[in-house]
Design a protein around this nucleic acid. Sequence first.
DNA 1: TCAGCGCATGTTTTT
DNA 2: CATGCGCTGA
Length: 767
Amino acid sequence: MAFVLFVVTIVVWLLAVSNLCSSVASMAAGCYGCDHNIFLLQCAAMNITETLNTPQHEAVTTQDENLMILAGAGSGKTRVLVRRVAWLMQEKSASPRSILAVTFTNKAAKEMRERIETLMAKPIGGMWIGTFHGLAHRFLRIHWQEAKLPESFQIIDSEDQHRLIRRVMKNLDLEEKEWPPKQALWYINNKKNDGIRSQSIDSYGDVSEQTMVKVYQAYEEICQRNGLVDFAELLLCAHELWLNNPQILQHYQQQFKYILVDEFQDTNDIQYAWLRLLTTTTNNIAVVGDDDQSIYGWRGANMENVHRFQHDFPNAKIIRLEQNYRSTGNILKAANALISCNSNRLGKNLWTQAGNGEAISLYAAFNGRDEAYFVVNKILNWVQQGNKYNECAILYRANAQSRAFEETLMRANIPYRVYGGMRFFERAEIKNALAYLRLVANENDDPAFERIINMPARGIGNTSLSNIRQIAKEQNISLWQAMKNIIDNKLRPAHTCNALLAFLNLIKRMRLEIKELPLHEQVEHTLHLSGLIKHYQKEKNNKDLSRIENLEELVSATKEFTLSEDEDTSPLMAFLARAALESGNDKEESTDNFVSLMTLHAAKGLEFQVVFLAGMEEGLFPHQMSFDKPQRLEEERRLCYVGITRAMQKLYLLHANSRILYGSERRQKPSRFIYEIPDEHLEKTSAKIKIASTTIRRKATSTFNYSTTINPEVNPAFDLKLGQPVEHAKFGEGVILNFDGDNRVQVRFKKHGIKVLSLEYAKLKPL
DNA sequence: TCAGCGCATGTTTTT
DNA sequence: CATGCGCTGA
């Protein structure tokens, strides 16, 4: 047995080594301090601190003091965290279970665990690595009684939360128009993030706040009754668990000798309070973050925590990691210049040993389409030079911007992948399937009940449902119990009661039949018994075909699902929790060769050889919504900083003079961020359409051989620019408004209004 | 029960 | 523009 284990370990280890070593070959020279190099050394010496730069070394090997590591983009942040954990275990004999590491995403948690295991060449199962929410969930599962939760409590996602709040507000007779549920959702989550319960809010007679408190309170009650816990509640509840149970808190304070926090700048108030509570004088906390990359303020992250930390831990050592191993000098200097426009920074200046590299290209496009052509053309050039698609990323502020690029990429036959959008566990068919399972696990789960009571249709319409809601509201019981009530007392017409009874029996039967089955069979069985499969099979359009595929995917996901050793609930409960806590599309590192398209937010933590930062226009980026508040504008600037620092070799900044937004074409001004980058780092080009007599020289459409340089050989009639005054033989004087398609131009004439003219026939003369 | 119409709306997103 | 939501009528 021991031998088998040993062999397995070696194989895993060898795989890791060969992986890393092959990466080393592709590393650029001068990448001093990369993990790959160190690994080679370790093969011989296993010295965890070798080849770290001075501040990195200090960050890894500081033992007794608390630590705040300010890690700039590309400065080896994750590497330091991983090394620190390894160092603590190897040099300080820290046991895995004495270490608590908190990350921002599940993906980061997974990555950290894997990297530590690779480095230590052994599994570290007992270590507590996870997101705040994941860890809070784990605490609550263990101490559900002390936390005053039912044993079978379920996690609800924001969508369920939204629906539930809407129902609560309906019960309170609040008009949706006057009291938008979204606002209440926002209110409640904010309060929870601040650690405040409804009973401790004093509204000072403010009617609107009073109403919000009423909703909050009713929502709390229904969650308690249904055994439901939302995301913010996980944190708040875990916090209260410790506050109300000093002995439990003490237990964990003693257990976790070392606490590590990644992405510290993104923590909110309750998360900070949580950490604060857990850290005493006898254990050690190390937080890693970058105040310049704080881009989640809009969802409660509080940068003030960075200052708070310094106040609460006055002896904490502050270490700055400023040497960047990712980008060229030009890119870094541009990033530094841009971010220096922000106030209240902790201060940090990235530098690199690498050379200046190529200048940043700034391209002024005509419109969104031209912008896309330009990008596609540059990507083709890049690949023609022997490089790969997956070294390129197109980044933008808002998801809607992906479309123009997708169309153009598709026409050019360039493989691409769009990140973001609908996530696996958020898809309706998946949520429906999970709702059955949730109801099986806990019949009082109202959101699950509402979702599937008539899905697939079983003759229980709105009237019956609102009846059930009514009874539930009056008697303060769950929908399930209300339904039972109706059946038992025959409160509705016979056919309705029969339908309800059929539903009730269906769920009961499911519960009975799947009880002893392995998880994936439970799911498969449920899918068939529920009629969901049949329902989606009936419809034949493409969308519903993919729904079936997704449901099949769900089954295979359950097949692969394994209980981690720290979970001692039933597999079904564990799976449901994981489905709620994980989005289900962590960006897998893929060897496939495609261009990445994603928002700037999604790009955080990633790096690419070539980065296109699209839509650098006022109103779009910085976004219009951020204009009113300087704080929000600074967050936009940090977002821009994040975008710029994703680029390793080459950065393109793009803006269009005109763009279709919300259905109408608008003239766009270049983003202020462009002007905050010193000219010396920029190389500016712009679209010029040349007109030689009647033909426009615009080759972009078919060949992608788009030329942005002016060709003096042609005899251009004039440069066609937006706003250019022109004269037409028939319509007289006008101004060019826009470029419409390939050969047409939109002109507003003084006497004849707006016309779209074909450039080939309408002989326009410049004025 | 469901299709279809009209209207409002329009960042970022993980948990 | 384009999507999504609520409401209405068959």
